[in-house]
């Protein structure tokens, strides 16, 4: 893990702008948030292929569907709460049911967005998006992975939901790291516990792992960037090889990563799962780090959980 920090929304914006050069079939739509979702980088380079739809998310996703029927790869971006939440029916009926090639890249999920508070802290989107047939759900943890992911999803036909963070997080991977939709990255071989994390909590889990290692407690981290399809084999293997399974996510513990892991293990290898995340409540205003701490999804909370 490097010192360098970058928010995955920023990596997304850069990746999209760089892809725009070679992929003329990409069009980008935003709902008046391009400076926050970072689609403005693409907009500056390719203004003719950028469409600002105004504060009208339902219309944006419908328009994206229309482009997709004509063979384009539309990337539609806004905050996660307005994409997965406000435009759920459009995503369901106009995108997933006809299996259209729309890439929904939603930023500003979770309590890590900070000061804007509960109305903007999307904590249910993994659950809402993964129950939709045809949908792929991805949640990158760092800059390297995000840049790979944005290029990769252009090659994959069908709807994709990508969850991107506002908060800056450390760069975890170098360019030699390989990724694959439906797979995970395992960091470390420790057998004391497996910390399964996704998005912003992966770096927190790695920090906790390193702190624990100094005390002789060896754990591993599983970066679950592909939430649907999910790497069942890795979950089962870790459950067999390690003493505890702990999930940690900036999302409700119902419907998201914790639920995914429970579903896999209940069917394939029943064992206890300890879920860390937002537990049936809304978020609140505060600094991102303060909120990650308050909701017990930071490195300190993970460290304490394993020390229990």
């Amino acid at each position: 893990m490097l010192e360098k920090k970058i928010a995955t929304r920023e990596s997304y914006g850069e990746a999209l702008a760089s892809l725009g050069e070679k992929r003329k079939d990409i069009v980008v739509l935003d709902a008046d948030l391009s400076s926050a979702t970072k689609t403005n980088i693409f907009a500056e380079k390719f203004p003719e292929r950028f469409f600002d739809m105004g504060i009208a998310e339902q219309d944006m996703l419908g328009t994206a569907a229309g482009f997709a029927t004509c063979g384009k790869i539309p990337f539609a971006s806004t905050f996660a709460v307005f994409a997965a939440g406000r435009a759920y029916d459009q995503i369901r009926n106009s995108i997933c049911y006809p299996n259209l090639n729309v890439k929904i890249c939603a930023t500003h999920y979770g309590v890590n967005i900070g000061e804007d508070g509960a109305t903007h802290q999307m904590l249910e989107d993994i659950g809402m998006m993964r129950v939709l047939p045809n949908m792929t759900v991805l949640s990158p943890s760092d800059d390297t992975q995000t840049k790979w992911m944005i290029e990769e999803i252009c090659k994959k036909k069908g709807p994709v939901y990508v969850r991107l963070a506002r908060m800056e997080t450390p760069v975890i991977y170098d360019n030699n790291q390989t990724f694959q939709i439906g797979k995970t990255v395992q960091i470390g071989e420790g057998t004391g516990a497996t910390i399964i994390a996704t998005g912003v909590t992966v770096a927190e889990a790695i920090k906790a792992k390193e702190q624990l290692a100094e005390e002789g407690i060896l754990v591993r981290v599983l970066d679950m960037y592909s939430l649907k399809p999910v790497d069942k084999e890795a979950i089962i293997r870790c459950a067999k090889e390690t003493k505890r399974i702990i999930t940690v996510e900036d999302h409700q513990i119902v419907g998201g990563l914790g639920s995914i892991v429970c579903e896999v293990l209940a069917e394939e290898y029943p064992c206890k799962v300890e879920r860390m995340g937002i537990n049936d409540c809304f978020g609140k205003s505060g600094k991102p780090e303060e909120l990650m701490h308050a909701f017990k999804i930071d490195a300190e909370a993970i460290y304490q959980k394993i020390r229990e």
Partner: peptide, 27 residues
Amino acid sequence: KNKVAGVDMTTGSLGQGLSVANGMALN
């Protein structure tokens, strides 16, 4: 649209078609 040749868009949930038509027209 995926079941019948000549159907350009899957519809049913009211209010969504004009946005889709706009996407086609923009293209």
